[in-house]
Design a binder for these strands. Sequence first.
DNA 1: TTTTTCTCCGCAAAGGTTTGCGCAAAGCTT
DNA 2: AAGCTTTGCGCAAACCTTTGCGGAGAAAAA
Lengths: 338, 338
Amino acid sequence: MSKRPVSLKTLAQALNVSISTVSRALRNHPDIGPELTQRVQQLAQELHYSPNPLAMGLLKNATRIIGVIVPALVTHFFASIISGIESVAIEHGYYIVIRCSYESFEKEQECLANLLQLRVEGIIMCLSQETKTYAHFDPLLAAGTPLVFFDRVCRPAEVPTVVVDNQAAACRITRHFAAQGRRRIAHIAGPAALNISRERVAGYRQGLAAEGLDFDPQLLASCNMSATSATAATRQLLALPAPPDAIFGVNDTTAFAAMKEIRRQGLRIPADVALVGFTDEYHATVVEPALTSVMHPTFEIGRTAALLFLEQAKGPVPPRQVVLATQLVVRESSGQKP
Amino acid sequence: MSKRPVSLKTLAQALNVSISTVSRALRNHPDIGPELTQRVQQLAQELHYSPNPLAMGLLKNATRIIGVIVPALVTHFFASIISGIESVAIEHGYYIVIRCSYESFEKEQECLANLLQLRVEGIIMCLSQETKTYAHFDPLLAAGTPLVFFDRVCRPAEVPTVVVDNQAAACRITRHFAAQGRRRIAHIAGPAALNISRERVAGYRQGLAAEGLDFDPQLLASCNMSATSATAATRQLLALPAPPDAIFGVNDTTAFAAMKEIRRQGLRIPADVALVGFTDEYHATVVEPALTSVMHPTFEIGRTAALLFLEQAKGPVPPRQVVLATQLVVRESSGQKP
DNA sequence: TTTTTCTCCGCAAAGGTTTGCGCAAAGCTT
DNA sequence: AAGCTTTGCGCAAACCTTTGCGGAGAAAAA
């Protein structure tokens, strides 16, 4: 389509020397005389020569492209993580190609295959909600292709991961509720296949135990992390004979949905029901009442994942499991029980 | 680093035929006998052969990669647009590489140069806030490299663009305010270099005129679209001897900041000051009161931009200017004046 | 039987880059 | 002056793919 860009050949012909000489001159090879080196470099400047990454890729078997697969793009959480990945990638001369699995197992496999066809040097990804089997990563592992999981992970013995301290955070939330005088603390959990769901439930129960509160299965609702299913879960909780006086959602989307439903039923937050989210989407601060939430170091998660990729890309190293700390940001939605 | 993937050579050696024969067999060339064709294709299947895009790229001078530059990633608006671009790209066998200009002119140029080095087939982008000169696009135009602008645009005579009906929408907002009994309608505008800012101001003034209201320069504040500068602008407006009874922000971030500041000053929304945003970030529905805003067809903007790229990529065609319709979503924040 | 026509496949070049090796001319040593 | 080491550059292969052309063998025609 468009004209071919200037190549070594272009320069070589213009200067009446061989391609290899030009190549060497540009890399300041001692074999090339200083005068010629100078001339070559100057012409390269003038003609805005830049090495063809396709040719280099072919030669070195390295595209300098990282494939990134996220379950969703249009969320503060993933966008921010991608931003973190991008920043590290750029610093190290890598590009990132993003693909979205839309929380579908099938699409996740498609994306994976698709990116491998592109010959990405590795994959950084977050599992889809539907992903319950992990055999589709076998080929990568076998081929030694760098792979990094973040947030939702699997096969930690083989694949480096970066996650947050989900259980500790959930425990902290539960105890925070208790400290505010809440006794019937509910949790809207996510899909059980996801480590984040399981860990947060574990933290929830740990927190209950630490506060001497009994675990009531009725207070453990679950959803698929969509707003509608979270609304349904909230409705179910509020319809209980003994409804909860505190709810924490598996993420902020869930909490927002719960907030709407609670208000729709004419209940007050936090007077009647305290509420806490997870993931700290940007707008947690803007809702009324402001939402107490667990702040994820999203940008840092992205950066760390990218750094783990770089580690793997250098050579096979044992997979590291990085756990990043979260922070419970207390706002109005989890105020003292009157 | 990792082992080389299976190539035509691998297949050729395994089957003891030449590389060209394998290549032809895979593409069902009539020159190759049916029996051999069958054997080649079967082995290719078994070994999961897929053509090397680098080699193809070199040969065809086409990487099938689209470069995308956005001023920011971590917003509903841009994330959703990127999602739209990605969906079309995938459908047509393209990949997208995303770069972020962070609203900086300098970084915008870096990203551009960086993506061109990667030999992307074209660029889809949104101008940074700082971008006031447009000469850095000359090389692309000269080389015939496909280029598409969305939302914030320039050089519309030469470059295809996809924008929304900013002026009409701003006019609609202003008249909506008037219909709710507002008389002192303020606007917090964005940087004047941006078409979106100028068009929205024009719509604002058009709306005032249509309603027989005088334009008061004091009611036209401006900001750089950041929350802090929007807060300052709001403070300035509210400090006026005759403060506004309605404000519309150039986007939702601005409106959210205004909302906080208005409440901080003890004023009620919409009783004292009505408020309208622009861009309809997801959380507009979740704030209290829910924010009236102009809904952008973000996903569609992305899809359209990608389609315009495909048009250009096919061959040089005159640049089209696509204008997408927005929708004013009336919620509580712009209720009737008491 | 000889010539012609197919059928089926391989050679080689091109695209851009790096790099081991070879080779000529110049400078150096005795 | 003859042999030696440098110095400075080009050749060619490799990475992977497509494709025009040529060529060997077999089948068909004369």
